Computed example of a mutant assay.
Amino acid sequence: MTSILSFPIDKAKLAWLDFSAKNQDLHSLNPDDTKAFTSYVFGLIDEQNAQLGIGGWLEDRRIYNTREQFNLGKSRSIHLGVDIWMPAGTPLFCPEDCQIHSFANNEGFGNYGPTIILKSLREELYYLFGHLSLESLEGKLKGQTLKEGETFAEIGNYPINGDWPPHLHFQVMNNLFGKEGDFPGVCARNELKVFEKVCLCPYPFLGISAPRDV
């Protein structure tokens, strides 16, 4: 597989960002203030002299507590993908030979914003790229073939990206349950046993390992 960034992620200096209740900063930071949240995220990356920030798979996140998107009928807080925090406009590359399964602009505060789902041509795997720019959807066709290493999208900016600090939500699934252009990126605690069988650990697909305390 090829890196989804313009450089090998396993060779980069990573800043692992904690958005769980263990992070005391979140008790005073309002993540719904996207400008302030963006300054906080990229401040942490700069402090560590890192090339990008990484947000953990299956992390139980505090930052969803105040967003209606994650509290309609049930409280969803378990993150099913991995976040790559980099500036808006950062180009993204196809990890292997794929076809475009589907795409959509999932609008709304806290949502994915522009989203593309790729399907592997070698096995039943789907790659979700969320929080993209609107330009990333231009000219896209369902079933369109993309070559490994081909650039096809870019990280979007707020508010278009669902009103989040610029980052990519990258998620790998073995089943989409018939969904198109969208798939849950966060689940409730009592849904985890089901979703962790479908939403695979993304780290191997990025060539990295999670630190022991994440």
Rank of each mutant, 00 (worst) to 15 (best):
N105I: 13
N49L: 12
L29K: 05
D213G: 01
G113K: 06
R122L: 06
V198W: 04
I117S: 06
F177M: 09
A104R: 11
P114H: 11
S39D: 15
L125T: 09
A104M: 11
D10T: 00
L80F: 09
P91A: 01
D25E: 04
I63R: 04
G43D: 05
R76V: 01
C199I: 08
I160C: 01
K35R: 04
E124C: 02
E191Y: 09
S3C: 07
G113I: 14
K179T: 15
F37R: 07
K193T: 14
S136N: 07
A88L: 03
L200Y: 07
I78F: 04
T90D: 02
Q69L: 07
G53I: 14
L176N: 12
P159V: 07
L72H: 05
E123G: 02
Y203T: 06
T145K: 10
D10H: 06
I100N: 04
R61G: 10
K13V: 13
Q171A: 11
L26G: 09
P184D: 13
I116M: 07
L176W: 10
G108W: 04
Y112D: 15
F129M: 14
E107G: 11
G113F: 10
G181Y: 08
M173S: 13
R76N: 02
S209Q: 10
H79L: 08
D18H: 14
V41R: 05
S6D: 13
P95I: 15
G73I: 15
G43V: 06
G43A: 03
L72P: 00
L128P: 03
L17D: 08
Q171D: 07
G156V: 12
D213R: 07
D83M: 08
K142S: 05
T38L: 06
I78E: 02
L128A: 13
A12W: 02
I160F: 02
A12Y: 02
P166W: 10
N157T: 04
E68V: 12
N105S: 12
M86L: 15
I160K: 05
N174R: 11
F109V: 12
E138K: 12
L14N: 03
W85G: 09
I155R: 06
I208S: 00
D18A: 08
M1S: 11
C201W: 00
F205L: 01
G56F: 13
L141S: 13
V186H: 12
K193F: 10
Q48G: 00
G162L: 07
I4L: 09
K119D: 02
I84C: 00
F195K: 02
P202Y: 00
L44D: 00
G53C: 08
L118T: 11
A188F: 11
E59H: 12
W85F: 15
